[in-house]
Design a protein around this nucleic acid. Structure first.
Lengths: 157, 157
DNA sequence: TTTAAAGAGTACTAAAAAAGTACTATATAA
DNA sequence: TTATATAGTACTTTTTTAGTACTCTTTAAA
């Protein structure tokens, strides 16, 4: 299944939660509770985000936690995706990789994968955290069941 | 890294190779040679493709092999991707998954992930095998080095 | 009719990646 | 000074992906 990995997905959820309460520091426990993600995992993700991003401040000690320094509409989801996952390259035949393959002179698919990749990347770039959250929030719990079973049933019928 | 898995990538390469020679059956060994992918892996992929797609014919015995029954411009790459990988759902909060999560009433990101997912899916749908191959082929060898190292260097600088 | 060559099907193994856990160090506010 | 929170690191487990091996079936040509 062509999808973002869970940690990236979690990271986006965590940042969404922070973006709702920019007036104070939110600690990992509170994020864990709101997101429905285990504390240990939230801690791991938040450490990673802080070390890699420029839009979050962490504070230690009691009444510490995390706070965004940019507004939700200033944070593109591509930032979070590439921070967690590395570059968006849907195949190896993509990107500013100008060095030639040792086993081939050139790749006959390279140029066109680049086009497709660019469109996908632009799509992700054009959405901010604010865009993702624009509908009415009913619950912040992370939805973690898969669509795969349903798809497989469809295939058979 | 947000990317298609290798088998899907290989499958597209194999089908591209078949699309260049629609007049006769091409066997797995020939595909393996042209694609630079091991024979065993090509065999595995081709078996999968035949069992799941409606645009390829297989013939056993000597002078057997595989042949496309549709032209390259009639095969969308989304067909191959979803055949190999299942549905394109960049997060779990996506798709015609109308059943509610057991742990939450609703997902506050669901609707907007659906939009993003749809755009990505449409992009992939709009490209055919012919589109992927439209530039001059220099070599059919599969390019399998990664961009990740180069990206990591960029990050540090 | 026999034989060699090809794909089909299945099960297994190995490798890689992802996810989760645990522990120590450091900083901060009360 | 103490309790609380993040930072850093290493490790383990689980899951997914990739690759291999073997037997069965079909087909065309000798």
């Amino acid at each position: 299944m062509f999808k973002l990995n869970k940690m990236t997905d979690y990271a986006i959820v965590c940042i969404c939660i922070l973006s709702k309460k920019m007036d104070r520091f939110i600690n990992a426990q509170e994020i864990s509770h709101e997101a429905g993600i285990s504390l240990a995992t939230v801690q791991k993700i938040m450490k990673l985000i802080v070390s890699k991003s420029d839009f979050i401040t962490a504070l230690r000690g009691s009444s510490g936690g995390y706070k965004l320094t940019k507004k939700a509409n200033e944070i593109s989801i591509i930032n979070i995706i590439e921070m967690m996952d590395g570059p968006v390259c849907i195949t190896d035949c993509v990107d500013g990789n100008h060095e030639r393959c040792s086993s081939s002179e050139n790749c006959f698919l390279e140029g066109n994968w680049n086009n497709i990749n660019m469109i996908i990347r632009n799509t992700l770039q054009s959405y901010s955290i604010a865009d993702l959250m624009c509908s009415d929030p009913i619950s912040y719990l992370y939805k973690n069941h898969s669509n795969e079973d349903e798809f497989n049933k469809m295939e058979l019928s």
